[in-house]
Design a binder for these strands. Structure first.
Lengths: 126, 126
DNA sequence: CAGAATCCTTCACGATACTG
DNA sequence: CAGTATCGTGAAGGATTCTG
């Protein structure tokens, strides 16, 4: 059986590699509040205060930062709807929608395996 | 048309919810170095110094912390192979292997949509 | 209402040196 | 070899206050 000299990883052979740009992108898109924001915006376009109500634990500052990050990376759209008083609507983009599947895969994993993880944690504290 | 009083989100209706424990778990398992460590250990069991060589940018301290975190959550196993000089082998666990699919989904997304993201970033700096 | 500005604490992470 | 100990820095994130 002719073996390749360098047994390249399955990922590399698929053209997938964990380079710095990819790590950075995933960091920006999977950070502390992004999942909840994306989830919320997948359900419906929302205004700033809607999001604050939907995610009570987030502060204004962090929500702003999260939305800017998501907007910058093209997964969220911002539109000023009216002024006096200002209303701003945030919407998920087409690109953003493509993120939903992989994120849900993550959530499914976390939900499904949480018991095993908790058992491991108990074992770890010996 | 009889509408449900509360239009629950698709995720919630599937029993998926982004609660604090889930966020915490995902944080621990998707943090800065975890992806590369998991990827490496999926290919082959490795010793500490193997991992350092495979991931040149990581410092000893961070690698230790990463491995401890992963071990605590049950996705990585640690075994002292010999002493004098000490050799320690790290292996992916069965639980850890189940993480591979969702992680690869993420990497595929990132690889596939990186051009769109970069275009969005360019647009954003106006 | 949707943020920007300011202050402050925490903590992740790197660099370095040391040890069983 | 596989860490631990210590120090230092920057960045993340919260609380609060102010504004067009």
């Amino acid at each position: 059986m002719p073996e390749t000299t360098h047994p390249r990883s399955r990922l590399s052979s698929e053209g997938l590699e964990i380079t710095a740009p990819h790590r950075e992108l995933l960091d920006q898109v999977l950070d502390k509040w992004s999942l909840q924001v994306l989830e919320e915006l997948c359900e419906r376009p929302s205004r700033f205060s809607d999001l604050r109500r939907a995610i009570p634990a987030v502060t204004g500052k962090s929500l702003t930062a999260t939305l800017r990050r998501l907007e910058r990376n093209g997964v969220v759209e911002r539109e000023v709807v009216s002024s006096r008083p200002v209303a701003v609507e945030y919407r998920i983009t087409v690109l953003g929608k493509t993120l939903r599947e992989p994120i849900e895969a993550l959530l499914r994993w976390s939900t499904e395996h949480m018991p095993a993880v908790e058992a491991a944690r108990d074992r770890f504290e010996e």
